[in-house]
């Protein structure tokens, strides 16, 4: 059997090598791929969409329909985690409270909310390690800057590398950082499951919704130009704004899905306490 697998690998590899016989030269400006549609994108991107970054205009406009599905793929990943991992009936775990001043930990059998909201006690997880003050403090400083940078990346996708996917990932990472450096409960206090669920759906909904809006305004799906009917700009600028709109949608979904996947996986779907 092992030899059969080896044979398969060799076979696939030889097809791959065979394919290269006919490849155009590396970076050849006369290769078919650089002659057919690429020049059109390069030459017309700015005048069609007023977006200088060609990658963004191809991604979100010329082939924006693909990107919509890519975003949906990410949404689906979050959805799959929800459906497969989320457990609504939590196992009866014990509850731990720490006296903030003295550091004494109370272990209470079963679930309780007895001391929630008390100033002297804070709830901690069963696998709690004494708080790392350095980590916490640095995270507290960094997170706002990370988030600000994320927004910059989203907004600046028109001009430089960036866009919704990248920005969304950075934004999500900032919240995951919060959950890791404090605990899952803290993260969930800032943005809870319901919010994440709604955000993940809203993001893709914005994308698809903008497409559908174009449809309602009487043009093809995702034909942003027609948005100029309701926006005070010309069709080319409307395309640019439309692209920005969908980028924001992408960012929201990517952020929410990243965080919710972390939440579900780290807590085995119970969302009680994380790692």
């Amino acid at each position: 059997m092992r030899y059969l697998y080896l044979l398969l690998v060799v076979l696939s590899a030889s097809v791959l090598f065979y394919a290269t016989l006919d490849f155009p030269q590396w970076g050849d400006p006369n290769s078919p791929a650089s002659l057919h549609v690429s020049p059109v994108y390069l030459q017309r991107s700015l005048e069609d969409t007023s977006v200088p970054n060609v990658v963004t205009s191809v991604l979100a406009d010329y082939r924006g329909y693909d990107t919509m599905f890519e975003t949906t793929v990410i949404f689906t990943a979050g959805l799959a985690c929800f459906v497969l991992l989320r457990v609504f009936a939590p196992k009866m775990k014990d509850t731990y409270y720490r006296h903030i001043q003295s550091g004494v930990v109370l272990h209470i059998k079963g679930q309780t909310t007895l001391l929630d909201g008390s100033r002297d006690f804070e709830r901690i997880d069963s696998r709690w390690v004494p708080a790392d003050i350095i980590l916490k403090t640095i995270s507290r400083f960094l997170i706002p800057f990370i988030q600000l940078f994320a927004l910059y990346v989203v907004a600046h996708g028109h001009h430089s590398p960036g866009g919704g996917f990248q920005g969304g990932v950075i934004l999500g990472a900032s919240i995951i950082l919060l959950s890791i450096s404090f605990d899952l409960r803290t993260g969930l206090e800032k943005i809870h499951e319901r919010g994440l669920g709604l955000f993940s759906a809203t993001g893709v909904f914005i994308y698809t919704g903008i497409g559908a809006l174009c449809l309602i305004l009487g043009k093809e799906f995702l034909n942003y130009g027609v948005l100029s009917k309701i926006l005070p700009v010309d069709p080319v600028m409307a395309r640019s704004l439309g692209i920005f709109g969908v980028e924001v949608g992408v960012a929201i979904t990517v952020m929410a899905v990243m965080v919710s996947i972390y939440n579900y996986v780290s807590s085995e779907g119970r969302l009680d306490e994380g790692l």
């Binding site: 709604l198 993940s200 893709v204 698809t208 497409g211």
Partner: peptide, 24 residues
Amino acid sequence: YHFSVILVTFGLLLSFITYAMTWI
């Protein structure tokens, strides 16, 4: 004529709403 695209994209929209409904 637009039904062709409605078929797919409204499928997406409706599935997003269905999921969002979980939280409402």
